[in-house]
Nucleic acid binder design. Structure first.
Lengths: 196, 196
DNA sequence: CCTAGAGATTAACCTATGTTAATGATAATG
DNA sequence: CATTATCATTAACATAGGTTAATCTCTAGG
C-alpha cells in the first residue's frame, strides 16, 4: 500500500527522521471498508487513529429515540478518530461510518504513545494534530451558536467543497442540525433568489 | 502571590521537576482584574495563557448586530486562553471578560514554547491541557446538537455548579443559545413541575 | 424611608423549524 | 420497458423559541 499521502500529512507538521518514519510504517495497518460499514461503534472503546486514503466517512451521534446527528465528515487525506475514547479509554459517544467504499490506514494509540517516548518529533506531531482538531471544534461551535441554518449551509459548502454531490441531503441536514425538509426549503429559496 | 494552585493543576497532569517548576514560576505574571474588564478583545491577537485564581470569566462571541453569545465560563482553578489566537497568531474570534473582580496568573505562549524545548514534561503538560480543552469542546458540541434548551439548562447546572447564583440569567441564556425570556419560561415551568 | 435602576417574570404576538404525508424525479433491477 | 426503491420537493399543520413591552421584585443610595 502507498504510504506517501500519510507521510506527507505528517511531515507538514514537523520534520520526521527517516528512521522514525520507517518504524511507524511497520506499525500501520490498511483496511478496505464498504459503504455503510462502521469503523467505530457508539458505546465501544476504540484504540485506533485512522487516515482516510479514499472515500467519505461521517461521525455521528445516535439518540435513544433513533435520531442521528452528524458531527463531522472526513474526506481523503485526513486523520480521524474518536479522540476522547482513544485517549481516555472510555466508550465512544459517537460512531464512524463509511458513506462510500473506502480505504483507510490506521495505527493504535499504544503505538502513538511509544512514538512519544521514542523521539521528540512525535510529541510535536501529536500536539499539532490535536491542536488542529481543537480549532475545528471551536469553529464548529461558533457556527452552531452564531449562524442561522441557512448560513450554516453555506459554511458547509465552503468547508466541504464537492461533498454536497457525494452524500445525501439527509446527511447534510443532520450535520446542520435541521431536518431534510427544512434543508430542502432553504435550497428552494436559494435557487429562487438566484433567478432574480 | 501564591503559586500553589497552579502547581497543583500542572502536577496532576505529569511530574514536574523542581527545577522546571522554578523556571516557569519566574515567568508567571499576576494580574488583578475588575468586574467588566476585558482580558482579551475580539479581533485582537492574544499571546497569553491564563490561570483563574479567583473570580468568574466569560468567553463570548460578538455579532455585528451587537448580539453576544457566551461560549464558556471559567471559574477558580482553571486554565483558559483564546487558544487558536495564541497558537496561530490570528485575531481572537471571541473576547474574555471578568464577570466578578478577579485575580489571574498568566504566562506567554513564547514561554510555553521554550518549556517544550527545555524538558519533555512540558510537552506532556501541553498535550494534556489541549486534550482537556478538546474534550470540553466535543461535549459542548454534543450538547448543542443533541439537547433541547431545557436539557441544556440542566447540563449547565451540572457543569458549573453554583455559577447560576453568581451570574445573571442574561449570561446563562446567552450560553444556552436562547433569550433570557425563554430561559425564564423554562425556569417557570420547572418550579411548577416541582410543586406537583 | 423613599426612589431609581437592574434584573426577572409574564403576556401577546410572530417566525422559523419540525412533523407528517403526498407527490415528483431519478436510477437501479427484473 | 415496466417496476421498485431511494431521495428530494412541496404543502399543511403544530410547536418551540424570539421579540417587544408591561409589570414585579429587590437592592443600593440619597
Amino acid at each position: 500500500m502507498n504510504h506517501q499521502a500519510i507521510f506527507k500529512s505528517f511531515s507538514q507538521l514537523t520534520d520526521i527522521p527517516e528512521l522514525e518514519w520507517h518504524y511507524l510504517k511497520s506499525k500501520i495497518k490498511w483496511h478496505s471498508v464498504r459503504k455503510g460499514d462502521l469503523l467505530v461503534q457508539a458505546g465501544e472503546v476504540s484504540d485506533r487513529i485512522y487516515f482516510c486514503h479514499s472515500g467519505v466517512f461521517r461521525m455521528f451521534y445516535l439518540k435513544e429515540d433513533g435520531d442521528e446527528f452528524n458531527k463531522s465528515f472526513v474526506q481523503e487525506g485526513q486523520f480521524f478518530t474518536s479522540y476522547s475514547s482513544v485517549i481516555s479509554s472510555i466508550p465512544s459517544y459517537f460512531a464512524i461510518q463509511a458513506l462510500e467504499n473506502a480505504v483507510v490506514a490506521s495505527f493504535t494509540y499504544k503505538v502513538l504513545l511509544q512514538l512519544y517516548e521514542r523521539h521528540h518529533c512525535w510529541e510535536v506531531v501529536g500536539r499539532k494534530l490535536i491542536e488542529q482538531l481543537y480549532i475545528k471544534k471551536e469553529t464548529r461551535e461558533r457556527q452552531l451558536l452564531l449562524h442561522s441554518a441557512e448560513e450554516r449551509y453555506h459554511l458547509f459548502l465552503e468547508e466541504f467543497p464537492g461533498l454536497e454531490d457525494r452524500i445525501t441531503q439527509y446527511h447534510i441536514a443532520s450535520y446542520l442540525g435541521i431536518s431534510p425538509v427544512s434543508l430542502s426549503r432553504i435550497r428552494g429559496q436559494l435557487s429562487c433568489k438566484s433567478l432574480i
